[in-house]
Computed example of a mutant assay.
Amino acid sequence: MLRVRDFSNYKFRPHAVGKLMKGLPKPLTPDQSKTFVGLIEKRRKGTLTDAQTITLADLIKKKNARPELSEGAKTYLKGIFKDEVFGRSKNVQSKYLTKGIGVEDENINQYNEVHGTFLLKNETRYENDYFSGEPDIIEDGIIYDFKSSWDYETFPLFEDEVPNEDYEYQLQAYMDLIPEYKQAKLVYGLVDTPDDLIIDEKRRMAWKAGCIDGIPEDLDKEITNNMTYSDIPKEARIKEFLIYRDEKKIALMKLMIDQAREYLNSLNISLATHLQLI
């Protein structure tokens, strides 16, 4: 018999919170805000046309839109529900994740070498009412999270803003877990791909090219060159993004977690109804 799971206090891992934040209402653009203020003034004076009344109503609706879980977020939550209720866990593996885990220490060592620091891995897990997580590094008032780019093409050397908004939510969650911390650094590093992944990539390319006896020598060298970076200065293989604590963003994350908990609990009812029908 299945045990009903109460998700009212379910805690989310910081790296997963971004999945709940998709499809949030967009704020009014500067032009829309200007139009909104102008139409409010016209309404006060009683000079709104019918068309302007409709426009104002649309802007008010957009301005006051309540954040709601997207369909993608609900799909993700259904997966959590199945894992928890049925006692199963879906281990997602990819070459990108495998590399990230495999070179994490090397990534941190590269950063230490370039910056003359002595950052050490954090081994403490933190929890509060909403989150449970283990930041990569906590040092000198800053929380660090390291990401390993798959290759130089995906390395955000010239980006001015965080390329993946999920990572910003992740670091905001870490800062909420350690309230005295007001800053975090998202550090992208580019380090050599482990040999086994290079071999796998060559096998994949050989299969794709239909090369039964292995790939041509020039392609073999090209793949190795594209996945190793000793010829590139280490300074050009590190990209940092400084992220400041944002109380509004943290509050919004908690609002979405409250909704996620409600949705997870509603799935108990859906499951019970399903079982009664068969």
Rank of each mutant, 00 (worst) to 15 (best):
N107K: 08
S148Q: 09
L190E: 10
R13L: 10
N265T: 14
T49H: 03
S8H: 07
I40S: 01
K26L: 14
F131K: 00
W207R: 08
A173N: 06
L2F: 07
L255N: 11
I142T: 07
P179W: 11
N122E: 10
P27A: 13
Y130W: 12
S266P: 10
R125K: 10
R88G: 05
T55L: 06
R43Y: 15
I243L: 07
K248Y: 09
F7L: 07
Q170A: 08
D192K: 08
Y144P: 03
T47H: 03
M205V: 15
N226S: 15
I199C: 01
K74C: 06
G133D: 14
G189K: 02
N107T: 15
N225P: 00
T75V: 06
Y10A: 09
I199G: 05
K61F: 12
R44F: 15
G102K: 02
P14K: 02
V191P: 03
Q52K: 03
T98E: 13
F155N: 08
E165P: 00
T75K: 00
E159S: 10
P163C: 09
S8G: 05
D166V: 00
R3H: 12
P30V: 12
Y188L: 01
L190G: 04
I143W: 09
D151V: 07
D105M: 05
N164K: 08
D160Q: 09
E71T: 01
A184N: 01
E113K: 13
E240K: 08
K61A: 14
L97P: 01
A236F: 15
T117L: 06
S89L: 12
D151A: 03
T193Y: 14
D218M: 07
E235S: 12
K26G: 01
D58Y: 12
G87V: 01
A173P: 05
V162R: 04
G72R: 00
Y144E: 13
N9T: 12
L255M: 11
T55D: 07
G214T: 09
D231E: 15
I269L: 08
E159L: 02
D166H: 10
G102E: 12
Y152H: 03
Y188F: 14
S33G: 03
L120P: 00
I212P: 01
G87D: 11
T47A: 04
T47D: 02
S148V: 14
E168P: 00
L177I: 01
Y167E: 02
D145W: 13
T29R: 01
E262S: 12
K208R: 13
F118S: 05
F155L: 00
N9W: 14
P135Q: 06
K185W: 14
A272R: 07
E240F: 11
G18I: 06
N164T: 11
Y76Q: 00
S149T: 03
A16L: 10
I250C: 08
E165V: 13
K19E: 05
P27G: 09
K45V: 09
A51F: 07
C211A: 09
A184F: 11
